[in-house]
Amino acid sequence: MNSSFERWHIVQQFLFHEARLLDERRWDDWLNLYEDDAEYWMPYEWGQKSATDHVSLFFEDKTLLRMRIDRLKNDLSPLEWPPARTNRHLSNVQITEDTGDRVTATVYLAFVEYRREEQRWFSSRVTWSLHTEGDSFQIAAKRVDLLNCDQESGHLRFATPM
């Protein structure tokens, strides 16, 4: 077991790596970070408890995520052109649980997206459940709590996971 500082550094580097894969639109490499039964969840309600008795902004298993990135990748939709440029700024990285095999990490995420003459940004708190896999990790679950998840006027479309 590493010292807690080293551990924190390694986890943080992994999360930075995921953000980079997304920002560089390396979709397959990104999805390979996820376990087969992983869940990607962006709740609609602040503090939402369940994804099965309440609507969500995203609630996708690996199959649905694959469908989503396949569509972005294959450039079949003229409506995805030009592709969005994104930056994911991660800060306040904390490990909230670490059993050695299983790590829970939280960050504050600032997601900035530029597309078609418009830049928009979202602030959120993100929680990962990670499984240790050799020197690295596999993502078992990622939960993105958007600060304005339940904004009454709704949201313009989200094409990519955050």
Partner: peptide, 14 residues
């Protein structure tokens, strides 16, 4: 119903 409305009418619907 939850899953169908997510897929069709969430802002993330493809």
């Amino acid at each position: 119903s939850v899953r169908m409305v997510n897929a069709n009418n969430s802002p993330s619907s493809i």
